[in-house]
């Protein structure tokens, strides 16, 4: 426990230092945030247009889709905000910059996460939360708790996939492409009722890449639509736990691959 408190304290100190460093390049920071807001705005506008053209998608109403979209976006923002510096891992490995991290008496993943805060993703978080609150169906306290847990679980599912793929960078593989592809699948398919994609695609997006568990499965629970799912209801109720389990597994993979880090010649 003391270790966790120490890690959090140091995370915060390093993160503040990183932000002080980033503030040296003010214009960069402003452009980054503006681009983030503009990007999410366009995604949101797209859904709005779709929903105004078709009154329902896969039997889901505009309000239900907005709720699903909000859950997905909030979960995504909660994952990117702390993990955005994982994007630079390929570079950290190839340039041998990971050396510095491995010399310090602090968990390497915590140090990498503290290199940057995805400030540009604050726009995502805001948009996600607004959608979530506006489209929230009438829920009891237990369901609200489940919703919060599901959003965190969804963030952990995305984080787990990203971390497991990024681990391969430690073997000096080029992982950026495949990570961008996975991220794309999450954002393209995660925000819609999976039943519209049909059997095989739905199966793959549930059991191969667990896109469905980020938002679709828990949203179905909250909207009382578990009957449409391709997983049994008890599994759907346990979906927030899947994020925890997957992240624990991804962390093990990461720790294993860390031993294969080869540094550079000098």
């Amino acid at each position: 426990m003391a270790e966790v408190v120490r890690a959090l304290r140091l995370y915060w100190r390093l993160q503040r230092a990183a932000m002080r460093g980033a503030l040296q390049y003010r214009l960069n920071l402003v452009i980054g945030i503006a681009a983030g807001v503009a990007y999410q705005g366009s995604g949101f506008a797209f859904v709005w247009v779709v929903m105004h053209t078709f009154p329902a998608v896969g039997g889901w109403s505009l309000r239900e889709i907005a709720f699903l979209y909000g859950m997905r976006l909030t979960a995504h923002a909660l994952y990117v905000l702390p993990f955005s510096s994982l994007i630079g891992l390929d570079w950290l490995v190839r340039e041998g910059e990971l050396d510095r991290v491995l010399l310090r008496p602090l968990n390497p993943l915590v140090q990498i996460m503290a290199k940057r805060l995805g400030v540009g993703q604050l726009g995502d978080l805001l948009a996600g939360l607004v959608l979530l609150v506006v489209a929230l169906p009438p829920l009891g306290p237990a369901s609200i708790l489940f919703c919060l847990a599901a959003v965190v679980g969804g963030a952990l599912v995305e984080a787990a996939v990203s971390l497991a793929l990024a681990s391969l960078a430690l073997r000096t593989w080029n992982t950026l492409g495949v990570r961008a592809f996975a991220d794309d699948l999450f954002s393209k398919f995660g925000s819609y009722p999976m039943s519209v994609f049909g059997g095989a695609a739905q199966w793959a997006l549930t059991f191969v890449l667990p896109v469905a568990f980020v938002a679709y499965v828990p949203a179905s629970v909250l909207l009382d639509r578990t009957g449409e799912l391709n997983v049994p209801a008890p599994v759907a109720y346990g979906s927030p736990l899947l994020g925890v389990a997957l992240f624990a597994l991804a962390y093990r993979i990461w720790s294993r691959q860390l031993r294969h880090y080869q540094s550079t010649g000098t």
């Binding site: 140091l10 100190r13 390093l14 230092a17 002080r20 460093g21 980033a22 040296q24 041998g96 050396d99 510095r100 010399l103 310090r104 008496p105 602090l106 000098t266």
Partner: peptide, 30 residues
């Protein structure tokens, strides 16, 4: 890591964009 100090001549361990004193404080924290 706590028992060893390391200096790589080819690669600085300091925080590039911050004043030197900030780097030293961060090392003290770590």
């Amino acid at each position: 890591a706590r028992a060893v100090g390391v200096v790589f001549g080819q690669r600085s361990q300091l925080w590039w964009d911050l004043p030197l004193i900030d780097s030293l404080r961060l090392v003290g924290d770590l």
